[in-house]
């Protein structure tokens, strides 16, 4: 009986498979953001680097995508970091929900660098994120702060702005 209770509890505590679908879509969104932003001379690097902080599942999805797709003829390279100091030169930095507290620190480290910082919690554009995912009424949405895109010397398509919730 005890084992059944424990098994039941463990099964209830298990991660929902739905989260992998969400990671897949977030990876696709990041890929799409990359296509809708212009980096100055692609940073001079042959690779297009996306650094992921705190979401292994998303990193794996991106790695899968990197095998089949390129960004503006550059190879897609996925890196993972645990904190702001570990981040090497990147085009996109993604900060997971659970690592949101690093947002202002990452923004400070990346100040003036040509990088798109994408967070995963509503309200983080106020702390320097260019784009931040959130869920509302059963849908995945994103807020976008044009100021935090432009301050990094990036240009974005108006299509991106039109599809997001613009915050200042």
């Amino acid at each position: 009986m005890k084992k059944i209770v424990i098994l039941l509890l463990l099964s209830l505590m298990a991660t929902s498979p739905a989260s992998s679908q969400m990671s897949q879509f977030k990876a696709l969104f990041l890929f799409n953001f990359a296509k809708n932003v212009n980096w100055p001379d692609n940073g001079g690097s042959p690779d297009f680097v996306i650094t992921v902080i705190g979401n292994n599942e998303l990193a794996e999805e991106l790695k899968g995508l990197a095998k089949i797709r390129k960004i503006n003829n550059s190879n897609l390279v996925i890196k993972e970091a645990r904190n702001a100091e570990e981040i090497s030169d990147s085009h996109i930095i993604y900060i997971s929900t659970t690592q949101s507290s690093l947002m202002p620190i990452v923004a400070s480290y990346q100040k003036d660098k040509p990088v798109l910082i994408v967070a995963d919690k509503q309200g983080l554009c106020a702390q320097g994120a260019a784009i931040s995912f959130f869920t509302a009424t059963g849908k995945l949405k994103f807020e976008i702060c044009p100021r935090n895109v432009e301050s990094h010397g990036l240009k974005f398509s108006q299509r991106l702005v039109a599809l997001g919730n613009v915050v200042q």
Partner: peptide, 12 residues
């Protein structure tokens, strides 16, 4: 995934 990655942002 390949097909999805080719969708423009609106369609995605």
């Amino acid at each position: 995934v390949d097909e999805l990655s080719q969708l423009p942002l609106e369609d995605l």
